[in-house]
Design a binder for these strands. Structure first.
Length: 802
RNA sequence: GCGCAGGUGGUGGAAUUGGUAGACACGAGAGACUUAAAAUCUCUUGGCCGAAUAGGCCGUGCGGGUUCAAGUCCCGCCCCGCGCACCA
């Protein structure tokens, strides 16, 4: 008997699938989900593509496997794209993941090398995909034409390790998203001129559309919080003497009469103007110190700090003088960067007022009605809010205003890799778009990829590439040296996948509309950034009339991750990671690992790594294997249909569970089926060839999404010459699930006292009287007449007695 | 602080959404095979009483409640985890 040996089987089928990629991906099959799961035949799929992400090893594993498979490089779009959803797209579009991977692989390693990363794969030479860059650049160009891409100089997060700016979304706990280990530095802010996408223009509609999404509430809420809409008013305070206006944003215009001082952010541009001579030194010192502090330090220090500017403004409602302070608890990036402080009705202002002994004036009573607010006294706060805003507007000292927390998306990166921004900077014409016919702008080959040190990328040194003629005036000009955030690439790859070879346009709308939106998108760690960007770009393309549906993903599941046994995240610096390759190569194989990761817990739960887990699923796969081997060696014998009931039950259960993304219970059903078949084969010794063939084929096909290699091998052994991954999903037949008898639980006062077997067509009364006749029921009911007998059809009888 | 999701055996987790709690697996124990071990196969495994695969009592974080019936619903606590966090 042949033994189960993953080390031998897995490479064999990997090669087979590589050679027959389009054959495996069958567009016409309606077994989408099944395909989606089983398609990805790289062993790395164990860790990544079929569920729980082993978070820290993603890059390494991908790179190593790409190299094993003969690919020279990979890209984040790559691993995003290779996930479950990507397989979906690959299938829908009729191309294989391998094929799509070849399409979408811009360079990466060169930059890593430049960063001094030590991974051996960084030695590899990068390749770029001009086609993919071309359409990413085209999106930039269209955004630019629509006024949605603009350049601005502002303070921006800066990662010293990558020598690049980061978006707000890429800063996690004060650290760069790529460098977030304990030994990595905190990021700081720098003033840099860079490109932005005006995602704020879409804030309102992104927010409004969020509720209708069929996503989990947690993720929807994260999106809403990130967009962070607040309604309120902007109000002008005039500085005494100078006449300078200071505009503040508040969500509580009703408390205007209680505004007893103003607070400005240290970065506020008019601050210097209104600081008095006496206070100048104190203010300057404070501003310098607080800008030096990282935002994280500012947040950690909850103790309020601040300095008086020496100036006063007039509260437009009370006409009273209120002092103007500077304090870093006011954020320059939000609202107007200045606030009216109402210590009576705002905790933070109250804290500040207490510390610096500033006046507190109550303007809302316990009854939620206004007081001390002149003609607005007695009004309900909600009414007062409206009335005060109308009054402000009529007096031209303020207006109703809605503010969002979300900022424009910073898309410039000072990295070598990534699609170059298709802009030419001309001394006379300014920023000029590279004409469409000149796209793509391809990265030049360089020997040294380190950033140029002046805040620009390595591209600044590529003279031949850099120096060009202005498309408008023909004069000498230079290319933009920033490249685009790779998040842009991952914001639309799912659309390109549908039509990956189109040279004419970004994708064909008819094809895209046929498949969009994505039915089921499974990812990790993408509750905000990626999901908001992808929604934004899709909406933009929708507005351009390229795609009907403005939302990219119908369902989104944020899968859990595997953590170390102590619950901590895997991390390189802690050295507590688990390398999927080690497990695979130690003889258990990728199939066992994949199956374990799916079996350990529901997909959205985080699981702790358990060393015993993979041996467990290996044992299960081994049992499946053995069944097929023994069947092969057994000979014709007695007829038997003992296995059919359990087979049909398992097909039904597993199919429903997989549809529901309940992979753990689907696998449990397959294990039950296997255990049952073991018991049956002892009795009939595989005598009924036809029934056993059906049973084993069904089992193998069910297991295939989780253990694609082994199933393929067994499928061939069972006499097929087509792939198990092609239209093999078994059908169940309900007639085998019907039973002549059923088991009814019998309770007395809700406690289980007996079980009875009754025929399936027994009448309710019959069942009730049988239940009442049980010895144990009689014992507990006693002599008294039962008060009530409840029969829950096909389940239980509950006798209510005194 | 705000929000979200949870709390079930020694462990990971099941439970058709109000209907037999603990599926399946890990771990543990026993047996078969073996010179032996590993592998494999079979059985046992929530706690307590009991010879029992007779039956009983207790049991889903804690305290109350609704119901014929509560892991599931309601009220009040406690504890872990995650996300956001000086957003005016």
């Amino acid at each position: 008997m042949k033994r189960y040996n993953p080390t031998e089987i897995e490479p064999k089928w990997q090669k087979f699938w590589d050679d027959n990629a389009t054959y495996v991906a069958d567009l016409n099959s309606d077994k989408k989900k099944y395909y989606a799961m089983s398609m990805f035949n790289y062993p790395s799929g164990a860790g990544i593509h079929i569920g729980h992400a082993m978070n820290y090893t993603i890059s390494d594993v991908m790179a190593r496997f790409k190299r094993q498979q003969g690919y020279e490089s990979y890209h984040p779009v790559g691993w995003d794209a290779f996930g479950l959803p990507a397989e979906n797209f690959a299938i829908k579009s009729g191309i294989s993941p391998q094929e799509s991977m070849k399409k979408i692989i811009p360079g990466y390693h060169k930059q890593y090398k430049a960063m001094g990363w030590s991974n051996d794969w960084s030695k590899e030479i990068a390749t770029h995909d001009p086609q993919y860059y071309k359409w990413t650049q085209w999106i930039f160009a269209e955004m630019f034409k629509a006024g949605l891409a603009y350049q601005d100089s502002r303070m921006q997060w800066w990662c010293d390790k990558d020598k690049t700016v980061l978006s707000n979304e890429q800063v996690i706990d004060g650290k760069c998203w790529r460098h977030d280990s304990s030994d990595d530095p905190l990021v700081a802010k720098r003033e840099i001129k860079q490109w932005f996408f005006k995602i704020t223009d879409y804030a309102e509609e992104l927010l409004e559309a969020t509720d209708a999404l069929d996503w989990t509430d947690t993720v929807k809420l994260a999106q809403k919080n990130w967009i962070g809409k607040s309604q309120g008013a902007e109000i002008d305070f005039v500085v005494e003497d100078s006449g300078q206006k200071i505009r503040v944003f508040t969500t509580r215009p009703d408390t205007l009469f209680g505004a007893t001082f103003l607070v400005m952010a240290p970065e506020h541009p008019v601050l210097a103007k209104l600081t008095t001579h006496d206070q100048k030194q104190a203010v300057d010192t404070y501003v310098t110190e607080s800008t030096k502090k990282s935002e994280l330090e500012r947040m950690e220090n909850k103790e309020k700090t601040g300095v008086f500017t020496g100036s006063y403004a007039i509260n437009p409602a009370t006409n009273k003088k209120v002092p103007i302070w500077v304090a870093d608890y006011v954020l320059y990036g939000y609202g107007t960067g200045a606030i009216m402080a109402v210590p009576a009705h705002d905790e933070r202002d109250e804290e500040f007022a207490k510390k610096f002994d500033l006046p507190v004036v109550q303007v809302v009573g316990d009854d939620d009605c206004m007081k001390g607010s002149g003609k607005f006294d007695g009004l309900d706060v909600n009414k007062a809010r409206e009335d005060i805003v109308s009054w402000l507007e009529s007096e031209s000292v303020g207006e109703s205003k809605t503010t969002f927390k979300i900022r424009d998306w910073s898309v410039s990166r000072q990295r070598y890799w990534g699609a170059p921004i298709p802009i030419i900077n001309c001394p006379t014409d300014g920023a000029v778009l590279v004409p469409n016919e000149d796209l793509p702008v391809v990265l030049p080959e360089l020997d040294d990829f380190a950033p140029s040190g002046d805040g620009r990328s390595a591209l600044a040194r590529a003279d031949d590439w850099l120096k060009v003629k202005c498309p408008k005036c023909g004069g000498d000009a230079e290319r933009e040296t920033d490249t685009l955030d790779t998040y842009i690439c991952s914001s639309w790859y799912f659309l390109r996948y549908l039509d990956p070879t189109n040279d004419e346009k970004i994708f064909d709308s008819n094809i895209a509309n046929k498949w969009q939106p994505v039915d089921f998108y499974n990812g990790g760690d993408h509750a905000t950034a990626h999901m908001i960007y992808a929604r934004f770009v899709t909406r933009f393309l929708h507005k351009k009339g390229l795609i009907d549906n403005p939302e990219p993903f119908k369902r989104f599941l944020f899968n859990g991750k595997v953590t170390a046994a102590d619950g901590q995240m895997f991390s390189k610096s802690k050295g507590n990671g688990v390398d999927p390759l080690e497990i695979i190569n130690s003889g258990y194989g990728a199939d066992s690992l994949r199956t374990y990761l799916m079996f350990a817990a529901p997909l959205d739960l985080w699981v702790r790594w358990d060393e015993q887990g993979v041996p467990g699923t290996y044992r299960f796969l081994n049992r499946v294997w053995t069944l097929v081997q023994e069947y092969d060696e057994a000979s014709e014998g007695e007829k038997s249909d003992a296995m059919l009931r359990t087979v049909h039950w398992a097909i039904k259960k597993a199919t429903a569970d997989i549809d529901d993304q309940k992979y753990n219970t689907a696998i449990a059903a397959m294990m039950e089926l296997t255990n049952d078949l073991y018991k049956i084969k002892v009795k009939d010794n595989y005598g009924d060839r036809a029934n056993w063939k059906f049973a084993l084929e069904s089992l193998v096909a069910l297991v295939a999404p989780f253990a694609p290699h082994m199933s393929e091998e067994l499928w061939q052994q069972l006499g097929h010459d087509t792939s198990v991954h092609r239209d093999s999903w078994p059908q169940w037949d309900d007639t085998y699930l019907a039973s002549d008898t059923m088991t009814i639980a019998v309770q007395v006062n809700g406690k289980l006292r007996a079980e009875i077997q009754v025929s399936a067509d027994a009448s309710d009364d019959d069942i009730k009287s049988q239940a009442l006749a049980q010895d144990n029921v009689v014992k507990f009911v006693g002599d008294n007449e039962p008060l009530k007998v409840i029969y829950v059809p096909k389940k239980l009888v509950n006798v209510v007695a005194k």
